[in-house]
Simulated assay, not measured.
Amino acid sequence: MSERDLPTAARVADPDARRLIVLTGMSGGGKTVALRALEDLEFYCVDNLPSALLPQLVEATGRDGSDRNRIAVGVDVRNRSEDFQHLPKVLAELAGKGVQVHLIFIDCSDTVLIKRYSETRRRHPLAQRGVSLADAIVEERRLLRPLMAIADKVIDSSDLNVHQLRRLIATGYAQATEGLTVMFQSFAFKRGLPLDSDFVFDARCLPNPHWKPELRPLSGKDGPVRAFLEAQTVVGEYLSDTQRWLEAWLPRFEQDDRSYVTVSVGCTGGRHRSVYLVEQLAAHFRASRESVLTFHRELA
């Protein structure tokens, strides 16, 4: 599945309209990743909300004005079974009141789900004593089948890693603006280059906080690490040069009708220098752009 498979309405919807995205699907399919991607897009996100409370949530968030006119809610098998039966009616009523409702179902093959649960050693929410993982997945499909049938979009995450799914959601549901949605992400070169990168910057030439024992367990988000890096003249020069380069070239992508650009910054371990630079770059460009996201691969 590619970015253009997402509904056009999701990409060009009126940014001033009330929008409600309901995320559901198979446990282990990536619903939490998708919800976090929407949270990065400044959706007001709530996980595992009973369907009967959806109208109250929409009404309550609307009292604050347009700052919370975009809501995303996660619904899964932790909810009571009657919630699945009532959800279509609730969504129809909200749509009748002018709310732009979009139901996303994140599917995944049984084989991949079993592999993911085996790797993470998490327990399936329906796996009771004496019930196998395979049987729990079968029962979950039965319970969720009515929601999958009415979903506006079904995303199969079987062949997607977390970064690809995150980008797919962010690309499709970024707020409609006249500019790009820019994702700044940090990574470790020792774990490989992010395949979704449009630009890659190498920060391994900068002084490394890793060699300071007191800084090693921290990240580039922490004050002592920031202070260490900001005391290095070369770090400030690197940051300024990178900002100027992106300021010169990001507009070229806008002129080419691009909707999404990923800027990756890497260092050896992906915890200190790259994280710091990503946070600084994001803060700088948020002053002039509406849709700026961050993702720290090695901190996720």
Results as ranks from 00 to 15, higher is better:
Glu3Tyr: 14
Asp5Thr: 12
Asp5Gly: 00
Ala10Gly: 15
Val12Ser: 12
Ala13Thr: 03
Ser27Arg: 02
Ser27Trp: 09
Ala34Trp: 12
Leu35Ala: 15
Tyr44Asp: 03
Cys45Thr: 14
Ser51Cys: 15
Leu54Glu: 11
Pro55Glu: 03
Leu57Tyr: 11
Glu59Met: 06
Ala60Met: 15
Gly74His: 07
Ser81Asn: 05
Glu82Asp: 14
Gln85Leu: 09
Leu91Gly: 02
Glu93Gln: 15
Ala95Met: 08
Gly98Arg: 04
Gln100Tyr: 07
Ile106Asp: 03
Asp110His: 07
Glu119Asn: 08
Ala127Gly: 00
Ser132Asp: 01
Ser132His: 02
Leu144Met: 05
Leu144Ser: 08
Arg145Phe: 02
Arg145Gly: 04
Ile150Lys: 03
Ser158Phe: 05
Leu160Arg: 01
Arg167Ser: 13
Ile169Asn: 02
Thr171Ser: 12
Gly172Val: 10
Phe184Asp: 03
Phe189Asp: 04
Arg191Trp: 06
Arg191Ile: 00
Trp211Ala: 09
Glu214Arg: 04
Glu214Leu: 05
Phe228Val: 00
Glu230Val: 01
Thr233Trp: 00
Val234Pro: 01
Val235Ala: 08
Glu237Trp: 00
Tyr238Gly: 01
Trp245His: 12
Trp249Tyr: 13
Arg252Tyr: 01
Glu254Asp: 07
Asp256Lys: 11
Asp257Arg: 13
His272Lys: 08
Ser274Trp: 06
Val275Asp: 13
Gln280Ile: 00
Ser288Phe: 01
Val292Asn: 09
Arg297His: 15
